[in-house]
Simulated scan of single mutants.
Amino acid sequence: MTVLSEWGTYFPQLLQGLLVSLRLAAISLGVGIPIGLALAIANGSGGRVVRSVAVVLVEIGRGMPALVMLQLVYFGLPSLGVSFASFTAAALGLTLTTAAYTSEIIRGGLQSVPAGEVEAAEALNMSRFDTLRFIVIPQGMRVAVPSLMGFSILIFQGTALAYTIALPELLATAYSIGSSTFRYLSVLTLAGFMYVAITVPMSMLTERVELRLSRHL
Rank of each mutant, 00 (worst) to 15 (best):
W7E: 00
P12Y: 02
P12S: 08
L14I: 03
Q16F: 04
Q16T: 14
Q16S: 11
G17T: 08
L18G: 09
L18F: 01
L22M: 04
L24Y: 05
I27Q: 00
I27D: 00
V31K: 04
V31S: 01
G32Q: 00
I33D: 09
G36H: 01
L37Y: 08
L39V: 12
L39R: 01
A40H: 06
A40I: 03
I41P: 11
S45Y: 15
S45W: 05
S45N: 04
S52T: 14
V53M: 10
V53Q: 08
V55T: 06
V56W: 14
V56Q: 03
L57N: 02
G61S: 04
M64H: 06
L67T: 13
L70R: 09
L70C: 07
L72H: 00
Y74L: 01
F75T: 07
F75H: 00
L77G: 09
L77S: 07
S79K: 15
S79I: 13
S79Y: 15
S79A: 15
G81W: 14
G81A: 15
G81L: 13
G81H: 06
A85R: 03
T88H: 10
T88Q: 12
L92A: 13
G93W: 11
T95C: 03
L96S: 00
T97A: 07
T97M: 05
A99P: 03
Y101I: 07
T102Q: 06
I106T: 06
R107Y: 13
R107W: 11
G109F: 10
G109S: 12
S112P: 13
V113Q: 09
G116M: 08
G116H: 02
V118R: 13
V118T: 12
E119I: 02
A121F: 08
L124E: 11
N125C: 15
F129L: 14
T131C: 08
I137F: 10
I137H: 05
Q139G: 03
G140I: 12
G140N: 05
G140L: 11
M141W: 12
M141A: 13
A144K: 15
A144D: 09
V145A: 01
P146W: 01
S147F: 02
S147D: 03
L148F: 04
S152E: 00
S152N: 00
I153L: 05
L154P: 10
F156D: 11
G158L: 09
A162I: 14
A162R: 09
T164N: 10
T164L: 15
I165W: 06
A166S: 13
A166V: 12
E169F: 01
L171V: 14
L171M: 14
A172V: 07
A174D: 04
I177A: 03
G178F: 09
S179P: 00
F182M: 09
R183E: 11
R183D: 12
Y184H: 14
S186P: 05
V187N: 04
V187G: 02
L188N: 05
L190Q: 12
A191G: 05
A191W: 07
G192F: 07
F193S: 03
F193N: 04
Y195F: 10
P201L: 13
M202G: 02
M202I: 04
M204N: 06
M204C: 10
E207L: 08
L211R: 14
L213I: 14
R215V: 06
R215Q: 10
H216K: 15
